[in-house]
Design a protein around this nucleic acid. Structure first.
Lengths: 225, 225, 225, 225
DNA sequence: AATGAATGAGATTTCATTCAT
DNA sequence: AATGAATGAAATCTCATTCAT
């Protein structure tokens, strides 16, 4: 698989917040840093709260209570709860994208890429779940269907669709194939989380085998010949 | 695949609606029937409303407005919107289960079964017009883990586990494989619905190819070699 | 104190329900008995429920749940929740009135009457409290201010006002004096209930002494000479 | 009665309203003041509304409609109507306590104290226009057992207990006697308010006569001879 | 009479957002 | 920018009462 095929064409990270700037920045940067830090604090709290209560059930006050800010301050950073949702999705995608991109850059074959991407995804899923801490009792304990996770799915889907430029896959319905990969990863990921010791490697190998041979099968029996 | 192999041995269908009316009691039967009908009317309205507005955006009022019932009546049937969602998901799973069983009874090979089951599933999904229970992972905040949902999973898993008795499939993790099949069906089904003219046959063929060759690939590359 | 002074002038008890008719009544009386029994069952349940939750907080369904009747049946016996309240007050007064009347008939002096009436009242209060069973956590444990209790107060107030025909008490403001007696009985009764072993005799003696000597003092220093 | 005897030794008044504003912080003080004012506005409205409609009939909306605040604002101050009632009763007791203390400080004899306290109480009650907290046992479903209510009781009881150190009163049950005094004041106060022209002096004289001669009577006829 | 589901007005309560400080 | 109380529209939910069976 050619490198260029795996490198997404879109713009380089603007790294909008510079969230983890080293301490001791110039004084001029302090206000900036504090603004960015507040924004990031809200996003972090939202990640926690939304995965515990769900986007709808969580209130802006629940989110802001997870920071040391006052409720009104929220609106200095986000125009609305909905904008927070979008920003959170962006943030999730933004945090996952470099990981995914590194995998793409590193990978030399499609198998290599799929393996790296799935592994990264499962690691992300496990981390998110741990990040979420205690899960609300009424939620299936394994269902990490947060806004952020959905954004990650979109990212993966984009990468897969992109890589289907691959010769042997030309006849495959990219939309369905990406969906199928997503479906496999999502459900297997959920089962993995349900197990006592989430086995990222095992889940990854399973999905890789299924996806690759599935792709082979599809390219031999094209849906629209 | 032998017929008897696909018929799971567990309990007979619990007659889905109001089975407990006393025989020969016309008046009581009517009251019962009307209760079941009202419940179903709410479920139907919820299905419609949730797929139009999404679960989160829809209010309980939106749902009952979709029936000819009064607002308070909702609470004779469901304690909350959340309980309604679970019932809806359960309802979808419950109504799909007999269809799945019929496919299992009919099918003579695994390919036959997979094809029939997927085709039936996609037809069901189209008929239900994007039923929140069976499909839309991205519409509901979580997948309810209701008895009926589990039953469907177990049914699928059972059929697969039986097949995995085949020589070529001994090394496959049945749990993951069932999850993967469900994931593929779920996500490809959702994509299919998103298209102007849902192409049940195309989606079925795609999934069958992916699942069968995926299974082949898995049996050759065992997860724990 | 002359007997006739102590006998209230109003109509004889119509005994409207005949609640405790002996079993084995004529068949013709059965429907009647059952009607009366249902009514009484509702009143009994209301007594319990109202003293636990308070009149406002208690719903008609709470009351009816305390019987073996259906909710709609309530309205065969009472036009409204408010009518139930009135009936309950009547019932309380009706049950207390014979007791009070017996005291009045028995008593030969005012002291004798006051003693008997207070003793009867405190016994009634203790019984009511026991009848109420577990008291709602948010209520002061000793405050038996049920609709029924208020009716009993009215009864007592009437009797006291009536007996102030007594010679030495002519110059006393009967309204205030009845109120004062009520206040003493009410508050001392509440304190008594708060004690580990409600001492009816002690409370009675205390109140009698206070009321009688209070009356003496009042008759010597009349408020409107 | 010696001055020092009537001044209870316990803790100084907890400054009733918003005492915690930082000194010299005008802006913060204003916000605080406004919060306290709003709380008081709700209490005042509640006092009015509850005495007009009765506690049970009045809704939270009736109360806030009596202020210039918005409906939701109520819940910044009170969790429920019940909590409002308690606060109201507490508020009444809290505002009456200093008045009672002043009487105790001023009075030189027990008669003097009783007269002053009752007169002050009746004046307070008239000014409050039938305050649900201090008076109307029959308006509220129960007597809240708030700290301030208990404090008033203890204050009265303390003054009485001291007096009962007197030779003539050694055998009196101070608890019952305090309760009796409070009961007399409460009920006579309610009757007084019910009259066209509340006659504070008359009510005071009546209660003083009753309490003083009642005490005499009690000391002669000890409760446990 | 008895039943218990349906009704719908209205009560309670939440919460995204605004705004004065 | 930060604060946090106020806002009020809108949601949830209760419940006295009715009514078809």
């Amino acid at each position: 698989m050619a490198d260029e095929a795996l490198i997404l064409a879109d713009a380089p990270e603007p790294d909008p917040a510079g969230a983890d700037a080293a301490p001791g920045d110039a004084a001029a940067g302090k206000r900036e840093r504090s603004k960015a830090a507040n924004r990031q604090a809200i996003l972090d709290a939202a990640r926690r709260v939304f995965s515990q209560l769900g986007y709808e059930a969580a209130s802006v006050r629940d989110v802001i209570r997870g920071t040391d800010l006052a409720s009104g301050t929220f609106y200095n950073y986000f125009k609305s709860k909905e904008e927070l949702l979008e920003a959170l999705q962006d943030d999730g995608a933004r945090r996952f994208r470099p990981i995914l991109r590194a995998e793409m850059a590193r990978a030399t074959t499609f198998e290599d890429f799929v393996t790296g991407a799935l592994s990264a995804y499962f690691r992300f899923v496990v981390a998110e779940q741990n990040d979420a801490g205690v899960v609300a009792a009424h939620q299936a304990p394994w269902h990490a269907d947060t806004p952020e996770m959905r954004a990650v799915f979109q990212e993966v889907r984009g990468a897969i669709a992109h890589t289907l430029g691959d010769a042997r896959a030309r006849s495959i319905d990219a939309d369905y194939f990406a969906a199928a990969c997503i479906g496999i990863a999502r459900e297997v990921g959920a089962r993995m989380l349900a197990r006592p010791n989430p086995d990222i490697d095992g889940a990854t190998k399973f999905c890789v085998a299924m996806i690759l041979s599935g792709m082979d099968g599809l390219s031999k029996a094209p849906s629209t010949p």
